[in-house]
């Protein structure tokens, strides 16, 4: 059992945990970026230019000003999750429908994309 003197520390920890759980924490963005870059995960760089990403492809549009292009977060999520919903012939893999990424992973990637 925690003694009374430990309560303030626990409170501080809880505060940070809560903060980490909120959207767009640095950690989530970093995880999203890692997923976006990983060749066996999002591999976004295969087709899209992204800020400092090395040797990007150019099949899809550059990933910038994402908040402007997708003011609704859900629309961006749908685009990453399954681009064939909007265009059945899309060359973008249906990441969720084919389970290339989990929904949680897509959330993290969208967090990251929204910082671009």
């Amino acid at each position: 059992m925690a003694s009374k003197s430990q309560y303030p520390i626990l409170l501080v920890l809880l505060f940070f945990c809560g903060y980490a759980g909120s959207a767009n924490s640095d950690d989530q963005v970093a995880q999203g970026k890692a997923l976006a870059t990983d060749r066996s995960k999002g591999n976004c760089l295969a087709c899209h230019m992204i800020e400092d990403g090395v040797q990007p492809g150019n099949i899809g549009p550059p990933l910038l000003a994402m908040k402007l292009r997708f003011p609704e977060r859900d629309m961006l999520k749908i685009q990453v999750c399954d681009a064939t919903l909007r265009n059945p012939n899309s060359r973008m893999p249906p990441f969720c429908r084919h389970r290339i990424l989990s929904e949680e992973e897509v959330e993290l990637i969208v967090d990251y994309l929204y910082t671009l």
């Binding site: 295969a46 087709c47 084919h98």
Partner: peptide
């Protein structure tokens, strides 16, 4: 395939474009 791509997706529609390098 899992990536849902046809030969034509890359070699017709995206011909000349870059996949990474």
């Amino acid at each position: 395939g899992q990536l849902n791509l046809a030969c034509a997706d890359c070699h017709v529609t995206s011909v000349g474009q870059l996949v990474r390098a």
